[in-house]
Each structure stands twice: as C-alpha cells, then as structure tokens.
C-alpha cells in the first residue's frame, strides 16, 4: 500500500473566498434575518417614548394588506407605481444599451473614438442620483428654465406644473433612471458580446447572414446569460427604486402618491416613528417579490437556449 502524500491547495481557495463570506454574513445575511424577525413585532417611537417591541405575530402584514376606506390597498398601489416606473425606464434602457453595444463591438462598423463615447454615456452614472434629481426639480419647476423657454416661445400661456401631473412626473423619473443606467448596461453587454468567439460572426457572414439575422441568430442566443443577469439586476434595482422619486417629489410621491415607490413607503415608516415592525414587514414582502420575480425571469430567459 502506498500512501499518497500530496499538497492540498484547495484550502487556499477557501481562505481566499473567506473575506467575501464573512462580509456577506455580517452585512447582508444577519441584517436580513433581523429584518424578518422585526417584522413580527410592534416596535416604534412616539415622540421620545419607545413603544414595544411586543410580539404581534402577523399583525403588521395584515395591516399592510388591509384596504383603506375607499377600498385601496396601499401596498399594491405602491407596488404598481414601482413596476410602472421601472418598466418605463428599463425597457428603453435595455433596448438602447443592446443596440449601442452591438454598434460598438461590430468590426464592420469599426466606430472611431469608442473610448470617448463609452466615457460619455457612462458619465450620468457618476452623478449622485440626489443631485441629478435636484437638477431636474429645478429645471422643471414652475419658474424653472424649461417653463421659461416654453412661456417665452409662446408654446404655453401658463407655466406647466410638471411635478404636479402624474404622467410627467413618471416620465421624468423614468428618463432620469434611463439616463443614469443605460451607459452601465451598455458596457456590461459590450463585455458580453466581446466574450463571444469572433469566428461565429465571421462564419455567419460567410454563410451569407444579414446583420439582422446575425443579431437574432448569433449574438442574442450567445449573449443570453449576460442579458439575463442584466435584466435581473436591473429588476432588483428597479424594485428598490428610491433616490430619484424621493428627491424629485420631496418624499411625497406627488401627485396623489402615484410616484410613491415601495421603498419610499418603507422609508416613511422608518423616519420619525422608527417603526421597525411595519418597515420590516414591507422589506419581507419586497424580498419575496424580488426573489420570485428573479426566479421567473431566470427560467424564462435562460430556458430556450439550453440544450
């Protein structure tokens, strides 16, 4: 019998990935579990008095889904708002990012000054969302430059209250999110396309495929994993939409709370009353929704290309 005495390098692998898991457990898993725990307690502040924590079971969730006098369930309305705001921003974002990524990586087009364009389209992402929203708030205020231009050119007779009209507030929020994120998505997708073996494109060309055919038959299927990743991260980010509408509408989701997102709702409970019970319950709902939607998207987008 011969004893094999080899060196195990595997343990170094584990040691190298250890920091990530430590950070993940400390800063993500533990807070997540405490949030779940908090959701079952009545725990808030009234003035300088602390109420609770008292165990109340599912009361917070029941309260969350209890209709008000006019029969609306706040939570569903804010979920709807969030989805609308996300779709309005994300669909153009992904379509345009995909288009730009194809243009930039096409060896046929061979666009000059790529670096410059990549930097420029990434720029808006470097601005803080709050600063960006403040800028739009000022631009579109009743006495802001946009209204001044409209008034002096005679296009309108009265200043338009952009921030008081449902459709314009929603469009502004989506536009801002689009501007901030399409550069980021473009760069991700470009990396994905560059990861595809160049001979695939050459082979397609030799076989006489048109650009459209190449795109739909070659690029898209091979890009699927990255695309799924992009859509899922964009979706999770979208469900957690907060900064832009919060600053643009001063935390009120004007008008009639139609641009009030789920995280703004959560934040409203956290400010002033420090209501960890209700905020925890909203977080749990948000978590379940994001997890199940991610699963659905993952299944839908990755299945057709699996053999």
């Amino acid at each position: 019998m011969r004893k094999h005495k080899g060196v195990s390098y595997a343990k170094w692998g584990y040691i190298f990935i250890l920091p990530f898991f430590v950070v993940y457990i400390l800063f993500t898993l533990v807070p997540q579990l405490t949030t779940f725990y908090n959701a079952f307690f009545e725990n808030y502040r009234s003035g300088l008095k602390q109420i609770g924590p008292n165990f109340v079971g599912l009361d917070n969730f029941v309260k969350l889904f209890t209709p008000d006098k006019s029969g609306n369930i706040g939570m569903l309305k804010y979920f709807g708002n969030t989805v609308i705001l996300w779709v309005l921003g994300a669909v153009p974002q992904i379509v345009i990012a995909l288009l730009l990524a194809v243009f930039f990586t096409s060896y046929r087009l061979n666009i000059k000054g790529q670096r410059f364009f990549k930097t420029v389209i990434y720029m808006p992402n470097l601005i803080m969302a709050s600063a960006f929203s403040m800028l739009f708030f000022t631009l579109f205020s009743p006495v802001g430059p946009v209204n001044q231009v409209l008034l002096s050119s005679g296009l309108t007779e009265k200043a338009i209250d952009f921030l008081g009209i449902r459709i314009s507030v929603r469009l502004l929020i989506s536009l801002m999110n689009f501007l901030m994120w399409f550069g980021n998505t473009t760069i991700l997708l470009m990396a994905g396309i560059q990861g595809i073996d160049q001979c695939m494109f050459e082979a397609a060309e030799i076989d006489g495929a048109s650009s459209l055919q190449t795109f739909f038959r070659v690029t898209l299927p091979l890009l699927a994993p990255i695309l799924v990743y992009t859509v899922i991260t964009a979706m999770i980010g979208g469900l957690q939409m907060f900064d832009v509408p919060q600053v643009l509408t001063n935390g009120k989701g004007t008008p009639d709370r139609t641009s009030f997102t789920m995280v703004m709702y959560l934040n409203n409970y956290l400010g002033t009353s420090k209501n960890y019970g209700m905020a925890g319950a909203i977080s749990v709902v948000l978590f379940i929704v994001s997890a199940s939607l991610s699963l659905v998207v993952y299944r839908m987008l990755s299945k057709p290309y699996k053999n």
């Binding site: 009234s46 109420i51 006019s70 706040g74 008081g164 709370r257 409203n268 400010g271 009353s273 209700m278």
Partner: peptide, 22 residues
C-alpha cells in the same frame, strides 16, 4: 391645484399621519 378631489387629499393626509405617527 386640482390634481385630486378633496376626499382623496384628506385620505392621503391620513395615510401620511398613520405612517409618521402610528
């Protein structure tokens, strides 16, 4: 400003109160 009727405005105010002061 005419964006909502009076009852809706008051209902939204009550929601705000409930969130801030349970």
């Amino acid at each position: 400003k005419g964006a909502v009727d009076k009852d809706t405005a008051l209902a939204n105010f009550y929601k705000h109160v409930n969130e801030k002061y349970p």
